[in-house]
């Protein structure tokens, strides 16, 4: 649902680098250079970010809509 905290294979910390990675790749940087920059040198850790995907971003709008509706009903 959220990006994994540690690399599945070696156990190194990767979770704190995901946001940076996505932000920099989105503005057009080369993913392999960004991964080098973030200090991920083994391919086990690199695939954690390359294959990472946050499904929770698809869930949150529903929770948000429910909350807005609740406030609407309470407000009226």
């Amino acid at each position: 649902m959220l990006v994994p905290i540690r690399c599945f294979t070696c156990g190194a910390l990767v979770g704190d680098k995901y946001a940076d990675f996505i932000r920099r790749v989105d503005i057009g940087e080369d993913p392999s250079k960004v991964l080098d920059d973030l200090g991920l040198k083994r391919y086990c850790c690199r695939r954690m970010l390359l294959g990472g995907f946050e499904i929770i971003d698809y869930q949150l709008p529903y929770n948000e809509a429910v909350e807005m509706r609740r406030r609407e009903l309470l407000g009226s």
């Binding site: 990006v3 905290i5 910390l13 704190d16 709008p61 929770n63 909350e67």
Partner: peptide, 15 residues
């Protein structure tokens, strides 16, 4: 924590 930037959860409004 070793890093302050590790995401734990994401919260929608009022959660």
């Amino acid at each position: 924590p070793v890093s302050d930037k590790i995401p734990i959860v994401k919260l929608a409004p009022n959660q």
